[in-house]
Design a protein around this nucleic acid. Sequence first.
DNA 1: TTTTAGCACTCGACTCACTCAAGTGCTAAA
DNA 2: TTTAGCACTTGAGTGAGTCGAGTGCTAAAA
Lengths: 346, 346
Amino acid sequence: MLTKRQSDILQAIVRHYTATGQPVGSKLLADSLPEKVSSATIRNEMAALEEMGLIAKEHSSSGRVPSTVGYRYYVDNLLDKQAVDASDVAIIQNSFGQDFNKIDEIVARSADILSDLTTFTTFTLKPEQKMARLSGFRLVPLGNQQVMAILVTDSGDVESQTFTIPRDMNTDELESVIRLINDQLSGLPLTEVLTRLQQDIPLRIKSYMRSPSGVLNIFDNILSHVSSEQFFVGGKMNLLGFSHNHDPNALQALYRLLDQNESLSTVLDPLDDNINVRIGSEISNKLLDDFSLITATYDVDQYGKGIIAVLGPTRMPYSRTIGLVSAFREELAKQMLDYYHRYYDQ
Amino acid sequence: MLTKRQSDILQAIVRHYTATGQPVGSKLLADSLPEKVSSATIRNEMAALEEMGLIAKEHSSSGRVPSTVGYRYYVDNLLDKQAVDASDVAIIQNSFGQDFNKIDEIVARSADILSDLTTFTTFTLKPEQKMARLSGFRLVPLGNQQVMAILVTDSGDVESQTFTIPRDMNTDELESVIRLINDQLSGLPLTEVLTRLQQDIPLRIKSYMRSPSGVLNIFDNILSHVSSEQFFVGGKMNLLGFSHNHDPNALQALYRLLDQNESLSTVLDPLDDNINVRIGSEISNKLLDDFSLITATYDVDQYGKGIIAVLGPTRMPYSRTIGLVSAFREELAKQMLDYYHRYYDQ
DNA sequence: TTTTAGCACTCGACTCACTCAAGTGCTAAA
DNA sequence: TTTAGCACTTGAGTGAGTCGAGTGCTAAAA
């Protein structure tokens, strides 16, 4: 356990270093700490902190820099639980408009707002739709063998896709399939719809349809699109500013990662419903060793929980960023509830 | 006018420099040219070329590097009009699948294929839809006050948008507006549809509708979306590799440019129906001074002309890149015709 | 026992002088 | 007109020297 003075020193080192990017020396600390002690005393304490692995030197005669463990200790114990800046809260509240036509627009906008505020790269995921139920499939003929298929869920998600029907397909057949699907599957959770669509339904329509698989694939396709987790990424290009590695190849690898939803969903897993901070190597991905990741859920009551995350440099202003994430998750939840209430709970 | 030997030297300088990135010296040239002359002779010729502004030194005792004017001369006169590599043609042909559901998918895919081949950043624009005609508007009620509006053009473009109708709006009213629009505007060119929608139609429906503007805004919105030029960008991150400026701010400015459709459409204007090469400052945009831009149209017969473009470093392999663009524009035109024939000309 | 003053030491950053290699321009001879 | 030869220029690299910020350690002071 650290003494009060050691805590103060570690805190000051983290603050200075995250603010300036420069290693912090004993003299600077002696001047900036409220207790008046000499730089020699600070040096002794720093030697102790280094012994414990909380701070490190860049070279044998340089000032000290926090280690991963040091950041960890800082985040766990020394964080300034100050209220978020009132102006930031105002910005958050004003950045959401009212003119959203779908959930995805709110989620996408969220990523942008949060990245603007933090100047880092952000990720947002809408509330899990696993519990959403199918409210109906529509087919809209567009002429020229083209048809638009539309899926609507009871949570208000709309997913559409146009496709071309083979010349030899009977449109009556198609319509009877749609009727069957709507009759049998409306009101069921999407996960169940998916399994039924693959097991139950094919048996039923086999009798009166020549090649059922083609049609069902389309529904499958739309359905999996709706139920797949789709992260929105904000401030992608901010990465150029805070990544200390300017090697094009490393950056390209990083950007490929940001485009891979599957990889993202493993990396961004929010361990629990708190605001979680993972620092450098604690993120289990080599590409992100020089970064810190703050993840959090936001809770939209019966509509489920979504995820927001901020990726920044290990030397980020943790207090401020965590504060922003905290304020933001609440406002986002509020916005979503508003949206749902506006459209679905009259 | 250049002598044969001067041409050969300029050509060799461009070839070497684009291949290696190193300034080219007289000795290297003396060895690599087919005519056997001494390095001293080469030096005399190089002095002449420099006098003419075709090549330059990086410092007073370095080898020579092509100037913008030198590249220009090379591209205009010394290009190797060799056939494109057969393997590249094969790649181009095989990279297009058959499973496209809309034009936009072909265009987006094109940008990716071309950027993979060139390793540069590419832009594609689908054929101008100015001559496209409205084939119909549909409205599909989705429940909970939500409605999906779908616009279909005779060129097969489909654009949809969901919106929420005010509680006090009469759905009968809405349907009669749709009927009116379809009756009056089907078959007209989109540009005309737009003007009618703003002038003619409001007068007609004013009589039996309280607040026509809200509804018409929706159609306006969808329509302008369809008729706006939307560039697809491929290989965005390749820019990191070939941009010689690694300053984060400069890169961010560049990426902002790539996201601005309006700016892109002025920059990417294809001067005529040839393959046009603009080098460095010839592109009228300060951000692109260190790049070269190759633009070309592709011609899909009665369906109009689209644009493809490649943005790379001034020291790019012009012969190869121009060859690729040339082969690609033809294949793309073919693919689009195929697509149109498959769906619209039965 | 803790703190502090003092001092020798270390290391990166910078500067300066030097060398080396690649390239140039120019002159005079072929 | 071409070429051999040579003096000259320049960036890149190297090694020595200085400076400043920082350290660890010792011994005296509190």
